[in-house]
Every structure is written in structure tokens, then in C-alpha cells.
Design a protein around this nucleic acid. Structure first.
Length: 218
DNA sequence: ATCCCGAGGG
DNA sequence: CCCTCTGGAT
């Protein structure tokens, strides 16, 4: 059983569990690419629920790049305080908005090379924005995607960039965003970092780690 | 204690 | 490559 074969078996099962496109599967609330970009920057080491509790007041005050670029730093910090890393994140939002104005006409760029030049935006965030806001290829590799890909033995590497390329090759570039979100959702509900709930996992038949574990238990 | 859809700096 | 940034939930 090759990784490619496992990937082809896994894809439709995950699609059935978590139907929809990347936009529909994304749990962050946003009304524009700019707002998704900001919400994703805020989501670093923070739950989506908390980000969604934070962003309504934030976007009411600073809905777009021009408004955010002119935000009062202390006010901005107080608005995003609960998301953690609030000083660094406030700096990121300020700098990123200023750069959008100075270099990209106030719009969020679509190319990954441009996105990653923005403060607080790394490869993972760039891929979220591309796939969710623009329906472009982009496969965000976060801790969940990395963990599940390894447990499913789709990849061996720990390098997120290599993992991204590998998953794109296995599942197809256009599936990237939705695939990532589905792995994340499955990783949060069933295959968590500490507890693998293999007994009610829909992927068990295709999971080398789960089957090995099952064999040991019997 | 450990985790939450990380990124930047040394 | 490792450290730091940070609060809240479990």
C-alpha cells in the first residue's frame, strides 16, 4: 500500500466528513481578504473561537488597511489583547497595513512571494489567505497537518515546506486549502496531539499508526 | 502542565 | 536551530 494509494482512499472520506470548499470550511469570520489576513495573523497560538470573539470590535474600529494603518497602538493592543502575543501582533497589523498602502494600493496581494513580505505573515498564513480568500492553490501546513500526515504515513519529513509539496503531489494542488482544513478539523476532533481516538476514526483502515496501535491492543 | 490553524530574531 | 512573544481553556 503506497502513500499515493492511501491518499486517494483518504481524500473522499475526509471530503464526506467535512464537505465544502476552503472558504466554507474556514472557521474564521471575515468580510474581506484584508480581514481574513488580520484574523489569520491573530490566530497564531490562539483558538479560532477566541479570534472570532475579538475581531468584531476590531473590524468595527478598523475595517480596512487605511483605517488599520492609522490605528492608535494602545487602542489596537487593547482590542486584540485576549488573542495573546498582543504587542507583537499589534505591530504586525500596523506594519502590514502600512505596507499594503505603500506597496499594494491598499489591497491584499495574491502572490505568495508578496504575501510573505508582510509583517506577521509566514508561509502558512500566506497559504490560508490564498486558498480561503482567493480560491488559489495554497496548502497551509500547521501542527495538525504535520502530525496527521505523519501518522497517516503520507510524509516522513518534519519540514513544513517539504510536507506542503508532498501533500500537493499526493492530493493535487487545487485541493490544498480544503484538504488542510479537513486534516485540521479531524486533528482537533479525533486525532489530537495527545489522544488518538482510533476507535471512532473514519480513517483507521488507511492509517498505519492506528492499525499498529490496534494490533498491539488486541 | 499543555495546547491553541506561527512568525521573527539571534 | 532555538528562543521569545502572550493570554485563556482544559
Amino acid at each position: 500500500m503506497s502513500a499515493k494509494q492511501r491518499a486517494q482512499a483518504i481524500a473522499p472520506i475526509l471530503r464526506e466528513q467535512f464537505p465544502g470548499t476552503a472558504v466554507e470550511l474556514c472557521e474564521l469570520d471575515f468580510a474581506s481578504p484584508f480581514q481574513l489576513l488580520c484574523a489569520t495573523v491573530l490566530s497564531a497560538q490562539c483558538t479560532d473561537v477566541r479570534v472570532n470573539a475579538t475581531t468584531p470590535a476590531l473590524f468595527a474600529a478598523y475595517p480596512d488597511a487605511p483605517a488599520m494603518a492609522g490605528a492608535d497602538r494602545s487602542h489596537l493592543e487593547s482590542l486584540i489583547f485576549a488573542t495573546g502575543f498582543y504587542r507583537a501582533k499589534a505591530n504586525h497589523l500596523l506594519e502590514l497595513s502600512a505596507r499594503l498602502l505603500s506597496t499594494y494600493g491598499g489591497e491584499v496581494p495574491k502572490r505568495r512571494e508578496d504575501l510573505v513580505t508582510l509583517a506577521g505573515v509566514g508561509r502558512k498564513t500566506a497559504n490560508v489567505v490564498r486558498s480561503v480568500a482567493f480560491s488559489l492553490p495554497g496548502l497551509p501546513v500547521d501542527t495538525h497537518v504535520l502530525r496527521l500526515s505523519k501518522r497517516l504515513d503520507l510524509v516522513r519529513s518534519d519540514d513544513p515546506v517539504k510536507v506542503e509539496h508532498r501533500l500537493n503531489a499526493l492530493f493535487g494542488e487545487q485541493e490544498g486549502g480544503a484538504l488542510s482544513l479537513r486534516l485540521i478539523l479531524h486533528g482537533r476532533r479525533t486525532c489530537t496531539a495527545r489522544v488518538m481516538a482510533c476507535e471512532n476514526c473514519v480513517l483507521l483502515d488507511w492509517c498505519p499508526t492506528g492499525k499498529k496501535r490496534q494490533a498491539l491492543a488486541t
